[in-house]
């Protein structure tokens, strides 16, 4: 479970006892981690049957639902945090989902692999699609359809009127301070609707 350094970043940001909604919660690891570490209370949303079962087994609340059609079962401002961990790059309706997460949550936390990471750039320079720890798929079997760089994402936030409250950039679990768009493999953002 702990090969996910973004988990720690997220756990450090959220207040103990927070209400958390985890969109695309996978096997429930993050929510379980936040429940154990931060006494978070919340729900996961997941569409995949196997992940859903794994989530129920791990003891979290999980709702089977397609994120792409919005979050209408959740009331506005009903969560302290809505998390989209390693999911943004795999969704079709990116804008709708970011708007929905910031409607339902007081704050949003988004993590995604940085396509601008130097290793990815180097792969492209060499004429191949990047395959790395954070992008572990071949071009033909990847679920990732909306990859972006840190700069892309920040421009997207400006266009949507989304405030970036905090950013953490990680490479192999270590925080990257300078030239993050080049040296950072994974981004973690804390967002709010403005």
């Amino acid at each position: 479970m702990m090969d996910r350094p973004d988990f720690d970043a997220i756990a450090n940001w959220i207040h103990p006892g927070s209400r958390v909604l985890d969109l695309g919660c996978g096997n429930g690891d993050l929510l379980k981690y936040l429940t154990d570490k931060r006494a978070a209370k919340g729900y996961g949303v997941e569409i995949n049957d196997e992940n859903l079962l794994a989530s129920v087994r791990s003891g979290i609340n999980v709702i089977q639902m397609d994120l792409e059609s919005g979050l209408s079962v959740f009331e506005s401002r009903s969560f302290d945090y809505v998390v989209l961990s390693q999911t943004l790059q795999a969704v079709q309706h990116t804008e709708l989902i970011v708007r929905e997460m910031l409607r339902v949550g007081n704050e949003g936390i988004v993590t995604f692999p940085n396509f601008g990471y130097w290793r990815h750039r180097l792969d492209i320079m060499r004429g191949r699609m990047p395959v790395s720890e954070d992008l572990p798929y071949q071009w033909y079997d990847t679920p990732n359809i909306h990859l972006c760089t840190l700069k892309d994402f920040e421009a997207f936030c400006v266009r949507l009127g989304v405030r970036i409250l905090e950013r953490m950039v990680l490479t192999r679990g270590r925080a990257i301070q300078s030239r993050a768009n080049l040296f950072g493999a994974m981004a973690v953002y804390r967002l709010q609707a403005s």
Partner: peptide, 21 residues
């Protein structure tokens, strides 16, 4: 069933929901 799930969510009750294909 989603109507039921929504009402449970509105009350912060523990709920899991499976939609079996």
């Amino acid at each position: 069933s989603r109507e039921i799930v929504k009402a449970l969510l509105d009350n912060n009750l523990n709920v899991s929901y499976a939609e079996i294909d």
